[in-house]
Design a binder for these strands. Structure first.
Lengths: 128, 128
DNA sequence: GCAATAGGGGATCAATTTATCCCTATATGA
DNA sequence: TCATATAGGGATAAATTGATCCCCTATTGC
């Protein structure tokens, strides 16, 4: 596995939440697990842009950070179910806040993200 | 400059907010600008772990995403001031929510982040 | 026997992000 | 004359993250 070479900043709440939430698919994983999609294959279907591998890795990190738990049923073919821990559940309102802001400003965001400085006049200095 | 080779996902609000907020120092930059630290040198002092270079780059991205504006005063030595746009200001409560969650769970977060699986019993399967 | 199902992991490559190093400009003060 | 303050950028290296490819387990059904 990959071993970190720099030490994380853990000075304030923002640093701390960043440590557990960074990762391209983590927020979505937490969200869908909360919605009741608990099995790896269900999550993969909900997030088709991510590869199986990456989802597994990020789920494992969420587990190490005690945001989710993993139940293994000893059946064949194997069955696994992820659930939010109580700790993980406290993140749901936070995630909802993020998604809500994104939804509210959807059009504008799509605009500024896609324009990618095509002849923008950003560089006209605002001189006083 | 670096040119993106993959297209971003912009399906939902979470994707959208991710596009403008990802970047190691962006959230802090927005936060401190809102607190009144508007000049690049002030921001650098508030965020000593980031290099000058990276802050400049991330500030420019925030500007392209219309979250901050940049005023240039034609004086020597140069003076520049960043401010939140009205759009940027709408993010402050969202950021506050993030920081608050991190603060509330500070101890536990520090724990799970630092333990880094030292002889954890995570692997004892929970069999039913 | 062979494919399908369900979950997982190692090795490796590609993409992205962050950090480093060095260079520019101008006025002020020692 | 030289260091300092202020703001910025190019080139490049290092770190981190994500994606791909291929392989393994065991049972059921054809």
């Amino acid at each position: 596995m990959y071993e970190r070479k720099t030490t994380p900043n853990l000075n304030c709440g923002l640093d701390l939440i960043g440590e557990v939430l960074y990762g391209k698919w983590k927020i979505r994983l937490l969200w869908f697990i909360d919605q009741g999609y608990q099995r790896p294959s269900e999550l993969q279907r909900k997030i088709p842009d991510a590869s199986r591998r990456v989802l597994n890795i990020q789920l494992k990190e969420l587990e190490e950070h005690e945001l989710v738990t993993r139940k293994i049923y000893p059946v064949v073919p194997p069955k696994v179910e992820y659930s939010l821990t109580d700790f993980g559940k406290t993140l749901i309102p936070v995630i909802a806040t993020l998604g809500q802001w994104g939804d509210e400003h959807e059009d504008r965001l799509r605009d500024v993200i896609l324009k990618q400085n095509v002849g923008s006049d950003l560089e006209v200095p605002l001189i006083i």
